[in-house]
Amino acid sequence: MSSVLWLQAGACSGNTMSFLNAEEPSVVDLIVDFGLELLWHPSLGMELGENATKIFRDCASGERDLDIFVLEGSIIKGPDGSGTMDVFADRPMIDWVTELAEAASIVVAIGDCACWGGIPAMAPNPSDSTGLQFHKRERGGFLGPDWRSKSGLPVINIPGCPAHPDWITQILVALATGRAGDIALDDLHRPQTFFKTFTQTGCTRVQFFEYKQSTFSFGEGTRTGCLFYEFGCRGPMTHSPCNRILWNRQSSKTRAGMPCLGCTEPEFPFFDLAPGTVFKTQKVSGTIPKEVPEGSDHLTYMAHAAAARIAAPAWSKEDMFVV
């Protein structure tokens, strides 16, 4: 049995809502079948009265064993480092986070906000938000670059806005069933098993990408083409399993005609949503994508694209996702 304490700092609860969509295991399965001991969660369970604050205090002091501390939401340091823009159970949340992170065997950051600051940390960052161990792509964040939990691990980052429920539940089950050793992390402390692949891996539009055939409008226009060329899709540059492990067991943004916004990467929201950057591919010389797929360069990309367009079969210019 593993004990879990889940708190929300500068959060929207999107990761919790996502978590509640889980099946195999569902939240109920995790607790009833896998014996996960959810000590407290903002939207689950029923500890009232003295109990909740006592749980936080006992976990922080070490009186009660805390195996996994899950944090959702940004670390709010404002104003002036006081943390009083986010007060929880009578104290700045940063005080709880400091103590609970020290006390827990493993610390898990769920969602972009807890991983690297997320949308609250976007310019001008009014709440002085940051992530647990990263600020955007920069190492450090709230706990510092060298921080390690009691078990010797850095903060495990499960990014996304929100994180997919399976990325959360399968990691919790892995930790709860003694498979922590199988969780290999990448440079950004993300479990590789989920984040080695690209969002584009498994995208139903990948054949259009192969032949450089674009979608030209939303709505019925998305019955054909790839969203990379005109609509700013970040699928080829973003690491996630969104098209391997579908959302709500049904679909993904790119399958439904929505460009990937790159929300598992620390720069999300990209370009700080400056005018002209939302749902629009940034280009050089008016036609060439400013960013090309990871590992490629402009010259190689253009040569490949020219050849691909010549090779494009007739069907790649027609609607594919038809009624």
Binding site: G14, M17, S18, N21, C161, P162, C242, L246, W247, N248, R249, Q250, S251, S252, K253, T254, R255, A256, G257, M258, L261, C263
Partner: peptide
């Protein structure tokens, strides 16, 4: 919602 919007929560479709 996911069938029409790709995912829930947090689609911008």
């Amino acid at each position: 919602y996911a069938i029409f919007g790709g995912q829930w929560p947090h689609s911008s479709f």
